[in-house]
């Protein structure tokens, strides 16, 4: 399992975990910081941080102009790390993502020029506009934490966190992510339109000077790595693991394509992150339940002919949540 291997690699590196309270404080600082730019989306910011702590990646799907990019940029800006942005278009090539080997005349050899994927936070805008080959270049990087160009392997920075956006309108000339690849996104969230009060606030903030440019980092990459280690060490008791397993199994009962074991692992990790956000070093079923919709829905195909995710898939997950007893022995 690829996600497992990165985790093992971290453990070997011997990162000292932050105390849970400090990890929580870190998350709160980032949330607050992002909140100064993005109005009224605290829960999505939390979702993003959960994905980050769970060593996952986030897929944002929404109509254009609701702040997906601003969210990703302010998140990146809050962390003292590198940020890069990839605008996916139908003519984008894999090497445009990963980088290329360029012949260096002075040295008489090929020199690797890293692509935009080399960043702590990578924003992949409108990922479904690029052809599958280009998409898969990014997805492989996400899965393995490294890219291979011309037979040479280059490690990606740690933390490496991809926020991809998907346009829910303009359904022509798009390449929908295949089931196997959408599975690699830990969570899929939607932002939604702000309500009137929030919109007034938004309008007040952005007229003149856009605040995203002023985002100051509130934490550094090292602290983030330690917070991720804290998350990985959160206790998951047998009843919780059983709950996750039964939830996942239940979606398989209820849908044409249910949640894969990878989905179950992602759910448990997100639950760990959620526990950290709540200041606990153990997972309770509420954590699992809270994460289940955003972690599972995009991995479910409700009926044989339909799309992944969508309204019916959310309903399948909701039904599974209603049917499985979180307190069962």
């Amino acid at each position: 399992m690829t996600e497992g291997s990165t985790r093992a690699a971290d453990a070997e590196r011997g990162v000292e975990p932050l105390p849970v309270a400090e990890a929580r404080a870190l998350v709160e600082r980032v949330t607050e910081n992002v909140g100064e730019v993005v109005v009224g989306k605290a829960d999505v910011v939390e979702d993003a941080l959960v994905a980050l702590l769970a060593r996952g990646h986030l897929l944002l799907e929404d109509v254009p102009g609701v702040g997906k990019t601003v969210l990703a940029r302010s998140l990146a800006g809050s962390i003292d790390g590198t940020f890069s942005r990839l605008q996916f278009t139908p003519d984008l090539l894999p090497s445009d993502v990963t980088g290329t080997n360029v012949f260096d005349e002075a040295a008489g050899g090929f020199d690797f020029h890293p692509g935009p994927v080399f960043g702590n936070v990578v924003l992949g805008d409108e990922i479904n506009r690029a052809p599958p080959k280009t998409q898969s270049a990014l997805l492989e990087a996400m899965a393995e934490g490294q890219v291979t160009v011309d037979g040479e392997t280059h490690a990606l920075p740690d933390p490496f966190f991809v926020v991809a956006t998907q346009n829910a309108v303009e359904r022509d000339r798009v390449y929908d992510l295949p089931a196997a690849e959408v599975d690699r996104f830990t969570k899929k969230c939607t932002l939604g339109y702000p309500d009137v009060e929030e919109e007034v606030e938004v309008l007040g903030r952005v007229v003149g000077h856009h605040p995203v440019a002023d985002v100051e980092p509130v934490t550094d990459v090292a602290a983030l790595r330690r917070a991720r280690e804290t998350t990985a060490r959160v206790e998951t008791a047998e009843p919780v693991r059983r709950y996750v397993a039964r939830l996942v199994a239940e979606t398989r009962e209820r849908a044409a394509l249910g949640v894969s074991p990878r989905g179950g692992v992602a759910l448990l990790r997100c639950a760990q992150a959620r526990a950290v956000l709540d200041g606990r070093d153990y997972v309770v079923p509420d954590d699992v339940k809270r994460e289940a919709r955003s972690v599972l829905a995009h991995r479910v195909r409700a009926d044989a002919g339909g799309d992944l995710g969508g309204e019916d898939a959310t309903r399948v997950v909701s039904r599974a949540l209603d049917a499985v007893d979180p307190e069962a022995p």
């Binding site: 309770v284 079923p285 509420d286 339940k289 949540l321 209603d322 049917a323 499985v324 007893d325 979180p326 307190e327």
Partner: peptide
Amino acid sequence: PRETGETVRE
């Protein structure tokens, strides 16, 4: 009574 899908906190 607590419903099946409900956690104790809920």
